[in-house]
Design a protein around this nucleic acid. Structure first.
Lengths: 224, 224
DNA sequence: TGTACATCAGTGAACGCGCGTTCACTGATGTAC
DNA sequence: TGTACATCAGTGAACGCGCGTTCACTGATGTAC
């Protein structure tokens, strides 16, 4: 039992090492420069050995993508968690800023998940949950506000454009769900624009501009 | 004179043909699959011959990027132009929708300019102007509204986060410029989220959701 | 108008590179009696 | 506890591919006298 367990543990460790070497490579070279061979080289093993751990390049890529989504989500959650539950705007701000800071610190990993889709790569089921973490977190702040009556959901109106069970899944009144989705995509739109250089001649102080963006988005979702 | 002119004309034509073959290749294969050799193959010429027209792959890429920006800008402008000048919200809507529609029709070209930066590629000066066309157009709608008094710029406050000459360049009151930049990045954030699959389990009717996004962004910049 | 020369477009072979993936193999590590 | 066997990790060579770029070259097209 111990013996078999030891083998499994070593295997899990090496799997982690491969993913982390791949992440380091991704961080420095970008997604295009990420190859199985380069990862194997960095670990000093034959390129064929990696196939004992990942069946293909795509499978390794999936691991990286899931990790990146999880890291972003974890960063946002960690920043938001310590704040007082009734400090809605503070929680919103903290989550948004942590997301941006993670993106600035890990530009290539950010680009991997929020940039152009990797050609020939179809995201498997496993990425769905992790991809939603930041959005879910933002909606939780909103939902808390609605539950305590601090957030006014606004006039009731039907929004048929969203997935039918979305508002329910998020615990939000339907008329707020659409605005939440907009704020969510706007948050990443602002981060992507900054990171990908579109605001180069437009914004001078990116942190200050982002802070204003966050406030406007908070207004948009009716946070007091 | 005619002879030399003829040579120059032929040269210009073939240059165009190369760019268009590259664009076709980009449209079907994506940016990663775009290579000088593939383009040369499609035109039935030796790969080395392309070097008579473009000094490097990057130079060809620049041509494609400039063309993509220009095409998006032209689409937005063409949709906005025929509307009555005082129909501010109509003009705003038309520009935004045309932008989205162009993106849906040309996903790979869109990803080339609004997705992850191409690794090892530094955007030259030539791309700055074309890249700004949609943003400039949106601001022109706003500026028209301010000029005619239909748009209330809101309370005066200093926004030090933007490039110092930006509001002037755009003909906008400073307190509106920040919101305009946010609306601009939010527009592309929404389009990118749709195109790159992030709203897959979230939005059911993408066109309808986008229409709502556009209205919310129009509200944000204080369009009546 | 005709000829000698210069310019230019396009060719095809080559260089050197890195990639993903497969395959038969060698040892080491574990398992069953 | 000791031995025979099975499982597994890792190797190294190979396949076949496509890429960007260079270079000496051949003809054709233009230019100058």
């Amino acid at each position: 039992v111990t013996a078999a367990g030891a083998r499994a543990r070593v295997r899990a460790e090496l799997t982690r090492e491969i993913v982390e070497a791949a992440r380091r490579h991704l961080a420095t070279e970008g997604a295009a420069g990420l190859s199985l061979r380069a990862v194997a080289r960095e670990l000093g093993m034959a390129s064929s050995a990696v196939y004992r751990y990942f069946a293909s390049r795509d499978e390794l890529l999936t691991a990286l993508i899931v990790d990146a989504y999880d890291a972003i989500g974890a960063a946002a959650e960690a920043a938001e968690a310590p704040l007082a539950r009734d400090d809605l705007r503070g929680r919103w701000r903290a989550a948004c800023r942590a997301t941006r800071e993670w993106a600035l610190a890990h530009p290539h990993e950010y680009a991997l998940v929020y940039g152009s889709p990797v050609p020939g790569y179809a995201a498997p089921e496993a990425t769905i949950g992790p991809a939603a973490r930041v959005g879910v977190l933002l909606c939780r702040v909103l939902a808390d506000g609605v539950a305590t009556g601090t957030v006014d959901p606004g006039p009731e109106d039907v929004d048929g454009s969203l997935a039918p069970d979305l508002a329910e899944r998020l615990g939000l009144p339907p008329q707020l769900a659409g605005r939440a989705v907009l704020a969510w995509s706007s948050l990443f739109g602002a981060i992507s624009f900054e990171l990908f250089g579109h605001t180069h001649n437009v914004v001078a102080d990116h942190a200050a501009h982002f802070d204003q963006v966050v406030e406007r988005l908070a207004d948009l979702v009716r946070l007091p």
